[in-house]
Design a protein around this nucleic acid. Structure first.
Lengths: 159, 159
DNA sequence: TTAAAAATCACCCGAAAGTATGAACGATGA
DNA sequence: TCATCGTTCATACTTTCGGGTGATTTTTAA
């Protein structure tokens, strides 16, 4: 049942064409009887056939052509929780011209460590840390470690 | 010249149809001469006309109609880093149980301001700012402003 | 209405932070 | 080779920060 229905659906156009053909042949037979005896009736008859079948062809073509499939890709944005794709802004970092050690101190500062703790981490004296921090404040043109950290995070030079 | 060329281009299909028609009529006339005397030749003739003009109709339709376009929308998921739609983590903020003023001080601290500057911003004395900061350090269980700011940013309670 | 919490301010003190200056040493590069 | 820069450290000094304590006033909630 379903198969038959499917067959009908699939061949709908072919069946319609067949029926149309049958109807037209009947019509033509009738026309033949009416015009066959008239002079020049044949040319008229041929013209009518031509017109009708041209129309039929057009109709068929419109039915049977498969539509072109145009694929439109719509980008759907999915917001992800800040993935760890942090990349250092090398340009800004370069502009600041910080030394390796100064940058280390800056990073440790950003974690909230005191000079004492930073000194312990780097195995140097507190005075050294102070020197580094003073120089990096100067280079960054800030007055406090909090400002330095804020700026560094804003410029994406530390995570 | 250009106008004429444009005209030709625009009506190319119509002209082609005209020419096809002329050729076909000539062909039909010839066929008429050959088959008119044969028995049942007329049915064959009509069939040929029908076939040819059906083909012509199909050809015409394919030429003259705009191609059908079926648009298929495909959603492509692209992952975007959460834009600056910073939202305060109310849950974490509530857990800390900070007062309005303490949160204000915390926010100003995060911008790198000193207690002196914060006091000026809030039109209170430095001592008041100190009191607020001390209490918020206690609530956040940190020892320094830098730690407080680091924690606050990590917990998404300040921008 | 009354108690608790928040906000305000003051004073003191020690710790931490930051400035200034100088010095020593090694690496780097013109 | 000489100058520069980075790193290290020290001393001395000032400023800022943070803890502790206490007090007053306002706001909020029970």
């Amino acid at each position: 049942m379903l198969l038959k229905s499917n067959f009908v659906t699939k061949n709908k156009n072919v069946i319609l064409y067949g029926i149309s053909l049958a109807v037209l042949l009947f019509l033509l037979k009738w026309l033949e009887l009416r015009f066959i005896i008239m002079s020049h009736a044949f040319e008229i008859y041929a013209g009518i056939i031509a017109l009708i079948f041209t129309g039929l062809g057009i109709w068929l073509a419109l039915r049977l052509t498969k539509p072109k499939i145009k694929t439109v890709v719509v980008e759907k944005e999915i917001y992800v929780e800040k993935p760890e794709n942090f990349t250092v802004n090398q340009h800004e970092l370069a502009k600041l011209n910080l030394s390796k050690r100064e940058l280390e101190v800056l990073n440790l500062m950003a974690t909230g460590l005191s000079n004492q703790e930073i000194a312990a981490q780097l195995f140097v004296s507190v005075n050294t840390v102070k020197t580094h921090s003073s120089k990096l404040f100067e280079k960054m043109e800030v007055k406090r470690r909090t400002q330095a950290v804020e700026m560094a995070k804003r410029l994406n030079i530390i995570k």
